[in-house]
């Protein structure tokens, strides 16, 4: 426990000290929300547009922080032999990974609070009608996307291009899943593509808990899809994750 707390504090120091991470992971989704919120007005499907966007941006934030951000930082650490160096200390691997995950949760929780704050402040967005279910859905999302983030770390071979590769996955996924606005008028092919991605189902759960007053348990199918993707990610990571740089 002492080691976990120590590592969690270290991870927080590292995250906020690194300006690239803090801007790209923390500030960028907030900025995107303010920009999109200023563009979309009125209602979407009978809900205030700002509230719908807020839900979409929460989903994007989960994927950005727990999937892309986590994977980029772990690939960099692996390739610079930092992970290897840490393995020579008494810090257990499980404690380390738990602290990395907990630190990700903290960053995202602050981001979620900031998104709601901005939503209230500028766009009169609604507060979630089922806050408990929303928190559970967000934690499920962070866990599932972190599993995919560990898988991406295991599959990416070098730090060059890791960021580009992850964003090539992340941004289209967010677009197809409705992070940046409703997908109802997208061509059918794009909608079908979105229908197999985990982010669409996470956003569905967030939307249900935040705007429709439905508990997370009322959407077992969506829960299963999100959890299933997470488990696939963990299975890949368990087989392929390496602590040492990939030798050329």
């Amino acid at each position: 426990m002492r080691l976990f707390v120590h590592q969690l504090r270290s991870e927080q120091l590292l995250f906020w000290r690194s300006r690239e991470a803090a801007v790209f992971i923390f500030v960028f989704p907030l900025l995107l929300f303010v920009l999109l919120g200023s563009v979309y007005g009125g209602t979407i499907d009978g809900e205030p547009a700002s509230s719908v966007l807020l839900v979409g941006m929460l989903g994007y934030g989960v994927a950005n922080t727990a999937f892309a951000g986590l994977a980029i930082s772990l690939v960099l650490r692996r390739e610079s032999a930092l992970l290897k160096r840490l393995r020579a200390t008494p810090l257990p691997a499980a404690t380390y990974l738990a602290a990395v995950l907990a630190s990700t949760v903290i960053v995202f929780a602050l981001q979620a609070v900031a998104l709601f704050g901005l939503g209230r402040l500028f766009f009169d967005a609604e507060l979630p009608s089922r806050p408990g279910s929303l928190v559970v859905a967000l934690l499920l999302g962070v866990a599932a996307f972190a599993g995919l983030g560990f898988a991406a770390t295991a599959l990416l071979r070098s730090s060059e291009g890791a960021s580009a590769a992850l964003n090539v996955v992340l941004l289209p996924m967010a677009f197809l899943s409705g992070s940046f606005g409703p997908t109802r008028r997208y061509p059918e092919v794009l909608q079908a593509l979105g229908d197999v991605l985990p982010l669409r189902y996470l956003i569905e759960l967030l939307d249900a808990a935040s705007l429709k007053g439905e508990a997370i348990w009322s959407r077992p199918g969506a829960v299963a899809v999100v959890a299933g993707w997470g488990l696939v990610g963990i299975a890949i990571a368990a087989r392929r994750f390496r602590w040492e740089p990939r030798e050329a």
Binding site: L13, L14, R17, R19, S80, A81, L82, K84, R85, A88
Partner: peptide, 10 residues
């Protein structure tokens, strides 16, 4: 180690 880097910002 023969080659390892540390946290640039600490």
């Amino acid at each position: 180690l023969q080659a390892s880097q540390l946290w640039a910002n600490l």
